[in-house]
Design a protein around this nucleic acid. Structure first.
Lengths: 335, 335
DNA sequence: TTGTAGGCGTTATCAG
DNA sequence: CTGATAACGCCTACAA
């Protein structure tokens, strides 16, 4: 037998509407009765009935998260953080690992208040759903119908290249997954091309750009062989993701190439796990906590605002130094 | 404006209680009106209001899943499968990545119908929660208060050792994480010891057992060095988990040791991903789909039964051959 | 400041 | 077979 406000009312000797008001901290009830009711509620172990609250409020206080491809570390970390953040609010999170369309249908059924979508595919049809949808990914025209939280890959990669340039590196390679189907990966690749062009470091045949063909550590590991086979080996590498870079470390290690003595390595993805790798990796990207916070703040704002501003946000990535890159003699020094 | 059964009632020219019955396929309404109502509901795009249904039914149709440590591939796969399975039922899943105690409190608030718990710690206090809790892990006295789905590590490991023995291997090593804090890992270790004892293969100093000290691929990778340093190197390895074994492959490869020509490798964890590793790995364990199905079936049964049988289940692991083990001359052959 | 009454959308129990 | 009607637990005008 769960205790309801009526039970409390009886014990407190007031009507249950008064209890309701007291519980909701309404200014319409005397401070004294309020504290009394609260005390009794506490004592009786009262828990509000969500279903009833929802029925009347028309809100579910549930945020849906769509994450169709669950098996990658970085996103797993992000999901964890998002869940943590949501749990700090009155909302809760419900996860769907089904395909996007199906997930949205399910969420519609469940009448969630809002949806966070980890965009993995390009073609997301912007149907009319009865809740705001926030996309985490690359902002562009293609899905302009939804607001987007964009971790600003291009700026992050530019920071990485710029950092290496400052350290004196003039031959810089990129090892990442170049996938037409994944805007996030594509963006990083393009950003790298732009960055080295900006610094006049680009090589005509793009031999300093290696496509891993995948996103797991093994893809990065394998790419190292290709990297080492290059006639003019770069002195520094930008790794496209956490998993890939962890593979790169392994690959270089196998060939007894020291990081950072022989080769500097900087990675995209700014997550704490970077520090606990075999070699703590200097990395660029929006710190994952900030990212999670921003995503949660935004979706809740979208949910609670009457006329939400449907604009996208580009975040500001930061560079976290962890000693996997060192200064390099550029040849223009005077000694 | 969402459409309710009352709206349908008006259009159909019947009372809304009839609509309710029709929608629930009650035998108390004529087939003709039933189909008519259903058609209208369909046409008007009716979606039942979960909050209202829950309010009256006292059920939320939500299963909570507690998964405090999200960053491991095998469990991620299992969660995905469980989610898929639950989505085939009228239930939905809500995931919590918070610590066990806090998760349970949250779920209590949300009045979930049941909880699945991936046991990571030994000391789970069996409080009285208003829903059934199903533990995935090792069945033992320590948490006898909850029913447990046990993937039967001991039998799986025995199958692996037995399989290698049949192939002629007499020197078999185990590489896994031996953690007192993780009953699942501990169980596998103990099972291996028991298995080789059974076949009289045990070495006194246990030098054929290597503790990776961790569960990620890198832990397995590092353990290979230790393995190779052993004076009497085994001819076959039992890997403790998917991640660990993927590291072992890598480590052996680095030393130009061929699988299975030089060394046979069999792994715990029977997931499809085993087949897509660099070297498709023969593995033992309950197939992950079966596991997911069993878990979901069981929790739903617990939820829906009036007097649920609180007993634990040990599943039957299977061995899936994928050509990472070969026959070995035992020395007792006659040629 | 407090209590009364109506309603949120459904299901279930009775009469008709 | 069908239709009132009363819950379910809570919120919120409106009355007192």
């Amino acid at each position: 037998m769960t205790v309801t406000i009526k039970d409390i009312a009886k014990v407190a000797g007031v009507s249950y509407s008064t209890v309701s008001k007291a519980l909701n901290d309404s200014p319409l009830v005397k401070e004294k009765t309020k504290t009394k009711v609260l005390a009794i509620a506490q004592e009786m172990g009262y828990e509000p009935n969500f279903a009833a609250q929802r029925l009347v409020s028309k809100k579910t206080k549930i945020i849906g998260l769509i994450w169709p491809t669950i098996e990658r570390v970085v996103l797993a970390v992000l999901v964890t953080k998002i869940s943590n953040e949501i749990n700090k609010t009155p909302y809760s999170m419900i996860l769907s690992v089904e395909p996007v369309d199906k997930s949205l249908e399910t969420f519609k059924k469940y009448q969630v208040d809002g949806v966070i979508l980890f965009e993995e595919d390009v073609g997301i049809q912007a149907r009319n759903y009865p809740f705001p949808v926030l996309v985490y990914g690359v902002s562009s025209k293609s899905h302009s119908s939804y607001p987007v939280i964009d971790p600003n890959h291009e700026q992050a990669i530019l920071q990485a290249v710029s950092y290496l340039y400052e350290l004196g590196h003039r031959n810089i390679a990129y090892i990442g997954y170049i996938s037409k189907a994944d805007p996030r990966q594509l963006k990083k690749y393009e950003a790298f091309r732009d960055a080295i062009k900006k610094f006049n470091l680009d090589v005509p045949d793009e031999s300093n750009i290696i496509n891993t063909g995948g996103l797991d550590w093994h893809a990065g590991y394998s790419a190292v062989h290709e990297f080492l086979a290059s006639p003019n080996r770069a002195t520094a590498i930008v790794g496209g993701s956490y998993d890939i870079s962890s593979g790169i470390i392994r690959g270089l290690k196998q060939h007894h190439i020291d990081i950072p003595k022989d080769i500097s390595l900087i990675s995209y993805d700014n997550i704490p796990q970077m520090a606990t790798l075999e070699i703590p990796l200097t990395s660029v990207g929006v710190p994952i906590e900030d990212l999670a916070k921003k995503i949660v703040d935004t979706i809740i704002k979208l949910v609670e605002d009457e006329n939400p501003v449907q604009h996208s946000t580009k975040l500001t990535p930061v560079l976290s130094e962890r000693n996997s890159c060192i200064k390099r003699n550029t040849g223009t020094d005077f000694n």
